[in-house]
Amino acid sequence: MIIARKKPIEEILSDIAPYDRILILGCNECVTVCEAGGKKEVEVLASALSLYHLNRRDKKTFGEMTLERQCDREYLEEIRPVQDDWDAVLSLACGVGVQFTAETFPKLPLLPGVDTICLGANEDRGLWTERCQACGSCVLAKTAGICPVSRCAKRLLNGPCGGSANGKCELGADTNCAWQLIVDRLKALDRMADYETVAPIKDWSTDRAGGPRTVTREGIQI
């Protein structure tokens, strides 16, 4: 899923300063699971911002709404009947949701309430870690299911580098060496022969290097 992190309230306060009526818009998908922008976070942020402005006798009003998804026009249409009630929308969705909402409502100012971080997994309560960089051509079949693109700082396809020590990356003790993980898993799977095969130069045109990407599936288009 997409992992996001709540923006500091101070930053949000500065962003919303020019507006009086602000709709805080949550998303029921990824940001709900990573506890950054779901219904609960919408409630808490609305309450915190209301408290701040009540304390200053500012006449700002905050609305709360959480859509099933903000990356789908079908659900964004739910805002249309109320769009004139608000001066701006503070979206707690990922960058995709914020942009798609902005595209759907061209005259409604859109502000982001979270920082979108990565594609990751819920490793533990309150801990999310990166697992994929959406490079557009998956190499996991060759690397025992461990991604060197997202988990190796150097994105090495033939690793490890000289910075790997005791299973850790030279970045620090908190970061596992992806290639150590790959080798350990290849050994466990009795597939060390795969490690001897040199990976060819990766086609990075499917990554961001090729510009914004599009997926078209004609079979399901109407």
């Binding site: 309230i9 306060l13 915190a48 911002l49 701040y52 304390n55």
Partner: peptide, 8 residues
């Protein structure tokens, strides 16, 4: 933490 952020 939230109260600190909103100056309470």
């Amino acid at each position: 933490k939230i109260l600190t952020e909103i100056k309470m």
